[in-house]
Amino acid sequence: MRQYIFASHAHFATGIKESTELLSGARDNVHDLSMFVDGRTDVAEEAAKLLATFDPADDVIVCTDLFGGSVNNEFTKIVQTRPNTYLVANMNLPLLIQLLFSDQEAPADQVIREILAADDTRVKFVNDLLTDADDEEEF
């Protein structure tokens, strides 16, 4: 089975999980880990507790809020020691929705690479898109 962990500083992970549920429904294989709030201060401990609930053979895709942040750094250590664990930083809602609706039988690393390469997943500066659209209309 494929498990998903959304992990962040403060309540971002909980909130973005709620947003995915609004769009895709609640799923038993989607978990949030909001750190440095509600008494959660030890990322390693909280991550270990959550990972212990999974089958060791499960693929685990972890999405964190900030590359180089403390939550991401702790999961970087885990990825190096737990097989079938994949880490994606700088999560956003389009990324998560695409992951949840991806082919669950396809190799996780392949799915992640394809989604990250897709234009829909990238952050966009809408003002520039509007300017580009105006420029195209002039021709």
Rank of each mutant, 00 (worst) to 15 (best):
D59M: 04
L33A: 05
A48E: 15
R122M: 13
L50P: 04
L33C: 05
L93F: 07
E46D: 10
F67Q: 13
T85Y: 01
A47W: 01
G39W: 06
C63N: 07
G68I: 06
L99R: 04
E46P: 01
A52W: 07
L33Y: 03
D58Y: 00
V37E: 03
D58C: 10
I78G: 07
M35F: 03
I61P: 03
V37M: 02
P107K: 15
A89K: 03
D59G: 02
A44H: 12
F36Y: 15
V111P: 00
M91H: 03
D65A: 03
D120R: 13
R122A: 15
T64P: 00
L99Y: 06
T64Y: 02
V79Y: 06
G69H: 03
T76K: 07
D119L: 09
I97E: 05
K49I: 11
L66E: 05
Q80K: 14
P107Q: 14
E114S: 13
T85F: 03
L50R: 05
T85I: 09
A52I: 10
G68S: 10
L51N: 04
N72P: 03
V111F: 04
S34V: 02
N92F: 08
L96S: 03
D55H: 08
L66V: 11
I97S: 00
L99D: 00
V88P: 01
R113W: 08
D42T: 05
V60Y: 00
F54Y: 07
E74F: 00
V37N: 01
N92E: 09
V62E: 00
L66S: 01
A108T: 02
R113Y: 11
L50F: 06
R113I: 11
P56Y: 08
D120G: 14
T41L: 13
L95Q: 02
N72T: 10
R122L: 14
A106H: 06
L93P: 02
N73D: 12
V60H: 00
P94T: 06
N73I: 09
N72D: 12
V88I: 14
D119A: 13
M35N: 02
L33W: 05
E74D: 13
F67V: 12
T121H: 07
T53K: 13
A106Y: 06
Q98W: 04
T121L: 11
L100Y: 04
I78Y: 05
S102F: 02
E45T: 14
R113N: 15
A106D: 10
